[in-house]
Nucleic acid binder design. Sequence first.
DNA 1: AATTTCCCCAACCGCGAAGTT
DNA 2: TAACTTCGCGGTTGGGGAAAT
Length: 367
Amino acid sequence: MGRAPCCDKNGLKKGPWTPEEDQKLIDYIQKHGYGNWRTLPKNAGLQRCGKSCRLRWTNYLRPDIKRGRFSFEEEETIIQLHSILGNKWSAIAARLPGRTDNEIKNYWNTHIRKRLLRMGIDPVTHSPRLDLLDLSSILSSSLYNNPSQMSVSRLLGIQPLVNPEFLRLATNLLSSQRENSNFLLQNVQENHLYDAQVLQNQFPQVVQQNQLQTPLQEIPACTTTLSTTPCVSFNSEAQLMEPNVEQFPSNITNFTSQNCQLSDWQSDGMPSNLAEDYVAMPSYGYYGSDQTIMDHPISENSNFHSNNSNQNFRFASVLSTPSSSPTHLNSNSTYINSSSTEDERESYCSDMMKFEIPDILAVNGFM
DNA sequence: AATTTCCCCAACCGCGAAGTT
DNA sequence: TAACTTCGCGGTTGGGGAAAT
């Protein structure tokens, strides 16, 4: 396994491309195509290495490249695909015509990632940040259990921003997740084939690119857990297993983004049917309707199941989706068009999530 | 107006996979 | 089969412009 010689050998030029260089590269490729990147620069009269030429062409000069701001649809696609594929930028780019992996990667790192962090969502696992959850949970629990400190809460401006029940719910569910992770593994294995089918249907290109080279254990956890229902085993003590949550870091997302229905949350951000001690409730008591978790076929918990897109509370949708949001954002009254500013997007997200981490918690120190 | 800080993104680097000899 | 070459990917950097001081 060798490595291509580096550009700095042979005195090849590095750094920004000049218009003249661009034109040379374009002219050459238009005439001869791009077969051999190694010999291309020499033939094209460029003092560049082939790698640099390839990068310049694929990321900038290619005629089918789309420039300009990412649309909501593109953003949602990126977030959804990232939740499945992780940092497989090239695979993500394959689903976004005209966008390069480099552009998507940059956009993720400079925009989406930061926004998720500000919202308390781990951009890697697409789930609420554990550290912030625990911290906020402790803090808010203390404040709520000790009314004398409520004034402190108000003073700090914490209460309106952090939904303590939500945090407690999430934190406790995380514990349950750990206990059931092995069961999840079993689920994952059982449903792997089905997942692959779903993915194949929804993202044939991506699946084709990955299925042959990506064994199950290498598929990002989000992918394998899309159709595994983390809550299904909550009432089955026999299935309690040794913790191994690291294998399934994104299972949490399944709870928050898929199994919590927006309709179950009241306008003040509190779940309408959340009991004081929800753990003692029947396992599928989170739903206000008759619909239970067990009623969902496994596949219907997939983020990508179109039939479910208007029912489940999805981070990705909350972040950016006008089309699949429960509030029918395509309507004139609520639709946020592609020209909206990032602040507007984030403001919208925050309103929906009620999950903003207050600055007072010095969150930046965790990020 | 000058300086500093922040942010974005084009480009580079190193690695591994695939292909070739 | 091993050695080598080429390609493509993901992580990272640093230059330059914008914003803040």
